[in-house]
Design a protein around this nucleic acid. Structure first.
Lengths: 164, 164
DNA sequence: TGAAAATAAATCGCGCGCGACTTAATCACA
DNA sequence: TGTGATTAAGTCGCGCGCGATTTATTTTCA
């Protein structure tokens, strides 16, 4: 019923864009990578990659998770996380210990050094946001838009998997 | 002056999220990957990866570009594009020809098969959007939000590079 | 003119993403 | 109780992203 792409927005000052620029998915793709590039110099100082930074922040809020629940929180599969966590273990940031009561599970926890690094990492988003000069209102509005969008994508993914 | 992250939105029905969920960059990251996963089954039918899909659409609108300008349009570096374009050449979708008047430049153009594939690929965004059930208004509003966000990220990147 | 600077593309190495598959432990229930 | 299904994590292979470097061509200007 609700159709979409072609047709530029019927608004007065509509930007005359076409191709990838008119697609949500490309704009998400481009914005995500550009944002990560903005983080990169700060992350290098902390000796972290962007996905490692996300794992660190996630553990800071919920230490002692299993690999699967960590992946669910960050939208990563175990085939991404397993090698990544191995590298973070080598770097001395986390420990991975087989659970006693269920030997299939591996519990991931921050080391002392990991928690310290996480504290430093937690400063970055505010620091970047401040530098960007974005207004607080616009920040939270954009955040809400993205939450809604993610919910719609998840719904569509469910429908797709259900094969209706 | 304008500070940001911690502090949940001071709105009545503010979602009580913390950690990565409260960060713009993570929501962009998660939304982008989730959206690409939505595209993947359709792209497989067209024997394309997502970045190849973007290149194809970009060439459909502006054939005969150089590698650099293609990269500028899509936010990719030549070290990403060069191998990708080589694979697309092997697949018979594009041609890469050294420019006569400036032998540094390589002109990328669609083959017949490439143009046909691009036509098919151009159907996907509308198809996906229709399936998602998103309203047309919400689509264009989200698009504008993302364009504004990308502009702010670009501005911040400029400032960062300028080293102020 | 010719040597240094700038530009365009490619190559290399490493860390993700992710589809496909494997291994190992637990669960379900006939 | 045991055997098949399920679940959790890991391995493998390939295609990006991207920092660092290289090669080749053109531009600049002393």
């Amino acid at each position: 019923m609700t159709q979409m792409p072609p047709n530029p927005p019927a608004l007065p000052d509509a930007p005359l864009v076409a191709g990838p620029e008119a697609m949500l998915c490309f704009n998400l793709y481009a914005a995500s990578h550009a944002f990560i590039r903005l983080y990169t110099p700060h992350l290098e100082r902390l000796q972290l990659t962007y996905p490692q930074f996300l794992v660190l922040l996630s553990l800071k809020d919920a230490d002692g998770q299993g690999v699967g629940s960590l992946g669910a929180a960050l939208g990563m599969e175990t085939n991404t996380l397993s090698p990544l966590l191995k590298r973070m273990t080598t770097a001395g940031l986390i420990t991975r210990i087989r659970s006693q009561e269920d030997e299939r599970r591996v519990v991931v926890a921050l080391t002392e050094a990991g928690r310290a690094r996480a504290e430093q990492a937690a400063e970055l988003p505010g620091c970047i946001a401040r530098d960007s000069g974005m207004s607080e209102q616009s920040y939270w509005q954009t955040l809400e838009t993205l939450h809604l969008l993610r919910a719609q994508i998840d719904t569509a993914a469910q429908k797709q998997k259900g094969g209706v």
